[in-house]
Write a protein that binds this DNA or RNA. Structure first.
Lengths: 235, 235
DNA sequence: CGCTCAATTGAGCAACTTCAAAATTAGTGG
DNA sequence: CCACTAATTTTGAAGTTGCTCAATTGAGCG
C-alpha cells in the first residue's frame, strides 16, 4: 500500500462516468477532489478485510479486486469481482456497518480514497442518492441471479458462465487469452467448487475444443457452445 | 385477487414502522393513503411473475410470500421470503425494470398497492430515499451472505440454518411447531436441494431428536445442536 | 540450481440426484 | 360427513457428481 498525491482532479477523471459520481456537478466533484487520496495496492494485497470499519469509500481508478468471504467451514468464496469505475465500501458505509467482505487485489491497483464525511455531505444531493440507489439495486438483482445460478446449475454450467463473463468483462490479450489472470483455485472459489474440480472441467473443455489453455492462461474458442452449456441446451 | 376498500389510513397503520415508510411525515402518508388500494391474495396465488412490469409497489399488511425464480434448467429456486411490513417490487421500480422474481403467496395475504407515481413523488423526500437506500443495502448484504452459505455449506447445514430461520422469523403455534407451513418441495427450493434430499435430511434430524415432525408440521427440539450443525461445529 | 507455489492426475469416497412405486394427506363435491 | 380424486410425502435403489487426499509434475523466481 502506497499513498501518492501526484494525481488528477476528480472533475476531469473519466472513471466517474462509470459510477454514481457522474450524478455530481463540478462543485461537488471539486470538493471531493480536494480531500481524496490516491492509494496503490500490489496484486495480492488486501484492500480491506471483513469486519473492518472503513473510514470512506474507494473509487477504483485501475485494476481489479475480488470481494470474498471465508465461510464457517473455512473455505473462501468469491462473491464478485470489482473493477475500474466501481466504488468499494459503499454498502457498509450506507448501512454504517463494518465491511461484510474481504477485498484482495487481483492485479496491481490504483484507488482513490474518499473520506466518509465527504460522502455523507453528498447525501444531501438528490441525484447522487438516486444514482447510488439504482446502483445498489442493480447489484442486488445481480446477486439474486447469481444465487439462483449457483443453486441450480452444475459446475460445468457455472464454469462456462464464468469464462464467458471473464472474457466479456475483462477482454483478451493480443493472442486472444482472457486478460484477467485467475488461479485455478480462484476460479473454483468463484463458482463454488474445489480447484481440482475446476481443473478437471477445464481440461474437459479443452478436449472438446471449447477453450485453449496455455500455462495459466485461458482462451475461449467456441463461445456459442459454452453459452449453450451455460443455458443447459447442450452438455 | 380481490380489491377491497374497507381499510385503515396509512397514517395510523403500524406496518409502516417496519419499512421505509416510517421515514415519511403525516402529510406524505396521507397522500399515499388517498391513492392506495388494499388487495387480497389467497395462498398459492401469484402476486406477480418474473418479467412483469409493475405499476407500483405492494406493502405487505399481512401474510407471507416467496420470491422465487425458475432457473434455465427449469427448477424453481426461492430467493427469499417476504413478510409483514416489507415492500414488494421496490427494486424493479427503482431500476425501472420489469420484475426479476416471481412472487407467490405462501399464506393468505393482504397487500396495500401504492402506484408508481406516488412513490416517484416521494423520491423528493430525502429521509425516505435514505431509508430506502439502507433497506436495499441490507438486502444486498443478506443476499451476499446467503450466496456464500449456499456455495460452501452442505444440505445438512443449510437445512439447519433454514429451520432456525423459519422458527425465529415466523414463530411457532401453540404446540411449538413452526407457524409458517412450507411444503417439502418448497423447503428444498429454499436450500437448493431436491424434495427427496430434504425429506431424508428431515427424517435424519427427527431420528437424532433435533426436531419433531407431525404430518406437515415441524417443531425444533434442540436448537443449540441445529445451530452447531449450521456452523459446522458438529455433524 | 534449488525453492516455493501452483497445476495436474489418480483413486476412493461421500453427498446428492433421479426415477419409480407405495403410502399418506388434502381438497372437493355430493 | 363421506367418498373420491388429486396432490404430497415417503421410501428404495441405482447412478452421478463432485470432493478429498496424496503424490507428481511444472513454472516462476532469486
Amino acid at each position: 500500500m502506497n499513498k501518492d498525491h501526484l494525481d488528477i482532479r476528480c472533475e476531469s477523471c473519466i472513471i466517474r462516468e462509470l459510477n454514481s459520481f457522474n450524478a455530481l456537478n463540478k462543485e461537488d466533484l471539486s470538493k471531493i477532489s480536494d480531500v481524496k487520496q490516491v492509494i496503490s495496492f500490489k496484486k495480492g494485497e488486501q484492500v480491506f478485510i471483513e469486519g473492518q470499519k472503513l473510514k470512506g469509500v474507494y473509487c477504483i481508478k485501475s485494476g481489479s479486486t475480488k470481494l470474498s468471504k471465508i465461510s464457517d467451514n473455512g473455505n473462501s468464496q468469491i462473491v464478485k469481482i470489482a473493477r475500474k469505475g466501481e466504488l468499494l465500501g459503499k454498502r457498509s458505509l450506507i448501512s454504517e456497518e463494518s465491511t461484510n467482505l474481504d477485498a484482495i487485489a487481483l492485479t496491481d491497483m490504483e484507488l482513490c480514497f474518499i473520506p466518509k464525511e465527504k460522502i455523507l455531505e453528498l447525501s444531501e444531493n438528490k441525484s447522487f442518492m438516486k444514482a447510488l440507489l439504482i446502483n445498489i439495486s442493480n447489484e442486488l438483482k445481480k446477486s439474486d441471479n447469481e444465487f439462483v445460478n449457483l443453486a441450480q446449475k452444475s459446475v460445468k454450467q457455472r464454469l462456462s458462465h464464468v469464462l464467458i463473463y471473464l472474457n466479456n468483462e475483462f477482454g483478451n490479450d493480443s493472442e486472444g487469452f482472457i486478460s484477467l489472470y485467475l488461479k485455478r483455485k480462484e476460479i473454483g472459489d468463484l463458482i463454488g467448487t474445489s480447484k481440482e474440480g475446476c481443473i478437471r472441467m477445464l481440461s474437459s473443455f479443452k478436449e472438446k475444443k471449447l477453450i485453449d489453455i496455455k500455462g495459466k492462461r485461458i482462451k475461449i474458442i467456441n463461445k456459442d457452445d459454452l453459452s449453450k452449456i451455460d443455458l443447459g441446451l447442450i452438455s
